[in-house]
Design a protein around this nucleic acid. Structure first.
Lengths: 183, 183
DNA sequence: CGCACCATGTAATGCGTTACATGATTTT
DNA sequence: AAAATCATGTAACGCATTACATGGTGCG
């Protein structure tokens, strides 16, 4: 899966593993992520599969940069992946909900403190999505008129993140009130 | 992590790996899941750690049942895990959003068909959470008056699932309209 | 007749994380 | 003086999936 995320970005322009790490963190961060170490491993596998080609840019005083470009095979793999519909809901894993599920015997105040801390975290996340992420999208869209349509899609995913955080905040609010009253 | 999910359920009563698979599927399904094969592996590791003990119930005509019970060490591990707060938002991975992010050049009708299919899936999921899951909770709560408080927590996690599905349906609705008008 | 259920498990593979290693440059 | 940035990678470990293997019971 990470393979296709990398392919998607390299399809815009040639990139190094390091750059991919930064781009993913700043753009798809709230619905897709990867550690740089894993990106390096995956890129190497993609090269062996023929999906990308590498060009080594020698540098002085720093390790050489490995710049990856998409190949025709890579482009066709990306396209056929994009064509394939998502036909089922992939189950998620949420550590907080798992913990909460079994928390009937945990101290009430500890629990409430924990939920209030999460309110802060999610409020910050929401703010970032509404300002930084939105700004990022309009910035990149302005670089090239061909990216106008792409920006529409980037924004649709950003919008999901926004709604998700708002929903989570609402749930936290509800749950805190419930626990305050019923425990 | 799965370790604690299993521990949490075994803490209610002794269970086999097979039963755990069913229980997880029916109760925590929308925020935590596991394949039975992985459950067997994890239970064995937990036994070696001393968190659970096994009793083998011989059966005729069927494989013997391995019934796992929680040990004092297991109980203390569960408690200390429950005490530890979740202090950061674990990044999620959403295949649909990843695909959508790069879908600017995908055929409009294909895309809309795909999103409408997802509307169905999420509507079904919402229905299940509102009927089957809610019923499951009140059923188990009625078995033992000691579980009243637990039911409050089970329901809080169920409520998250409900809000999540409602939010997703809203986003799908929004996104479909946007694409119908702007593409 | 075939499928689902009960009940356990192993082997191969893939994906991901954490920690480690190197080392100069720029910013705080 | 310390931390972050640039830039790559390996090794060990943990967790998850898929496929395979066994084999009786009960339902439509």
């Amino acid at each position: 899966m990470l393979k296709f995320a990398l392919l998607g970005f390299i399809n815009y322009r040639p990139l190094t593993g390091y750059q991919l790490g930064q781009i993913i963190e700043r753009s798809t961060g709230y619905f897709w992520h990867a550690k740089v170490s894993q990106i390096y491993i995956t890129l190497k596998a993609m090269k062996d599969e023929g999906l990308v080609s590498v060009e080594i840019e020698p540098q002085e005083e720093r390790p050489d940069r490995n710049v990856y470009s998409i190949t025709p095979a890579g482009r066709s793999a990306l396209h056929s992946w994009l064509q394939q519909p998502v036909t089922e809901i992939k189950p998620r894993k949420d550590e907080l909900l798992l913990k909460l599920f079994f928390s009937a015997r945990v101290d009430k105040e500890l629990l409430l403190a924990q939920l209030r801390l999460l309110q802060n975290l999610h409020q910050n996340q929401l703010d970032e999505i509404q300002t930084q992420a939105a700004g990022q999208i309009s910035h990149f869209a302005s670089l090239d008129p061909h990216l106008k349509k792409d920006a529409l899609f980037w924004n649709a995913t950003r919008r999901f993140g926004e709604l998700y955080e708002e929903m989570t905040l609402q749930w936290l609010h509800e749950t805190i009130r419930l626990f305050e009253e019923e425990l």
